[in-house]
Amino acid sequence: MKFEIPAALKQEHDDLRANVAAAGKEPGALGEAARELAHLLEAHLAKEEQLVYPPLGLLPAVVEGRITEEMAEAVAMTRQLKDDLADMLLEHRRIQDALRKLRAAAASASRPAYERFADALIAHIETEEEVIYPASMLVGEHVAQHLERQRAKGLVRTAPPWRSRPVP
């Protein structure tokens, strides 16, 4: 089953990568701080795009009660997320430290756009921890509960065949 990452989150990551890449080309402490941040972000963003964001793409179908056996993959993702959560939160702390360095370097270099970028990313991390990660885990938890009950009743629905056919 194809999991579409919500466009708002994908756009946020794309902008983030673009900003960090641009800051990395700056001279001096600002560029150095940005390159250190880029190094920390690379694996973390990839993990989010692999485990955290895809289950959120199921939200519209799940809230409408359209839960199918193919969604079990999201349950596996969010269970992995729960297992990896402590590590991912630790990565957030390291990224926030790097962002504070970048913010200070941007202030010294009188580059307010990068100061605002650092503030926005710090805020984004807080939203991820309070809302995005728990929402993703709830999708998995809800789908798991639903499928378990449906299986017990012998009522599991699979996706209609037209959904799984490859596009000609």
Partner: peptide
């Protein structure tokens, strides 16, 4: 709000 916050709030109720 449209793609995550509102549907997540509704899902909280359903769950």
């Amino acid at each position: 709000a449209e793609q995550v916050l509102y549907p997540a709030a509704v899902l909280a109720g359903r769950y």
